[in-house]
Amino acid sequence: MNALLVSTGIVALAEMGDKTQLLAFLLAARFKKPLPIILGITIATIFNHALAGAVGVWVSQFLSPEVLRWVLGLSFIAMAIWMLIPDKLDEDDVSLASSRWGIFGLTCITFFLAEMGDKTQIATVAMAARFDDAILVVIGTTLGMLLANVPAVFLGEKFAKRFSPKLIHAISACIFAVMGILTLLKIDQFFSSLM
């Protein structure tokens, strides 16, 4: 259950102000049809994060626990630093002019591609390697994406103005940094032994 809660919270925070959230705003403003956009975001995220989760599990099988601990700890710290770099979305990156795929297909394709190598995909790889249950991680990261993007689809610019992306990114960066430090110091093993 810890994997689900941590991955949901981290991705929901990390997604605030992210290029995929900007993409959700853009699609909602352009098409004004929330249901196919939300379904497209959901399907694209499930596939993208399932792939990332599988990579995380694969990586964890080939590295010794000590090497994996260092890789994950440093990866979480790198994610903390990356969180402080704001994302931008160029409208040229996403060809919205005409699509033979329809709104649902266009959303699936653009979200899947926008997530490739994105912070939340990298975080999914790291958390799937870190936690024992990659399925809960993928469910959690997908829920986190939806928590951040569904309100963006419905509320558009009003939602964007209510939240300070800098503050949310700073909070996310702190969470990633703490996870990295705890992983490097084996603090989580200490707390696990107490339970």
Rank of each mutant, 00 (worst) to 15 (best):
N2Y: 11
L5A: 12
I10K: 06
V11F: 09
A12V: 05
A14F: 06
M16R: 12
M16T: 11
G17P: 07
Q21A: 01
L22F: 02
L23K: 06
L23D: 02
A24E: 00
A24D: 01
L26K: 08
L26I: 05
A29V: 08
R30I: 03
K32I: 05
P34C: 01
P34Q: 02
I38G: 01
L39P: 03
I41H: 03
I43R: 03
I43E: 00
A44I: 07
T45A: 12
T45F: 10
I46E: 02
F47Q: 00
F47M: 05
H49Q: 13
A50L: 15
A50R: 07
A52E: 07
G53A: 14
A54G: 15
V55S: 11
V57R: 12
W58E: 13
W58T: 15
Q61V: 05
Q61Y: 09
F62S: 12
F62A: 10
S64C: 10
P65Q: 12
S75L: 13
S75G: 15
I77S: 09
I77Q: 02
M83D: 13
I85S: 11
I85W: 13
I85K: 15
P86I: 05
K88Q: 12
K88A: 06
K88F: 08
E91R: 06
V94K: 07
S98Y: 14
W101D: 11
G105T: 01
L106V: 08
I109F: 15
F112C: 00
A114C: 03
M116N: 08
A123H: 08
T124G: 13
A126Y: 08
M127N: 05
A128W: 08
A129C: 08
D132G: 15
A134C: 08
L136I: 04
V137K: 10
T141Y: 09
T141P: 09
T142Y: 07
L143P: 06
G144Y: 02
L147A: 09
L147W: 00
V150P: 02
P151F: 02
P151D: 04
P151H: 04
F154L: 14
F159Q: 04
K161N: 11
R162H: 10
P165Q: 07
P165K: 13
P165E: 10
L167V: 14
L167T: 14
I168A: 10
I168P: 03
I168E: 01
A170T: 14
A173F: 02
I175L: 14
I175F: 11
F176C: 05
F176G: 05
A177F: 11
V178L: 15
V178M: 09
L182V: 13
L182M: 15
L185N: 11
L185R: 15
I187N: 06
Q189V: 07
S193D: 11
S193H: 13
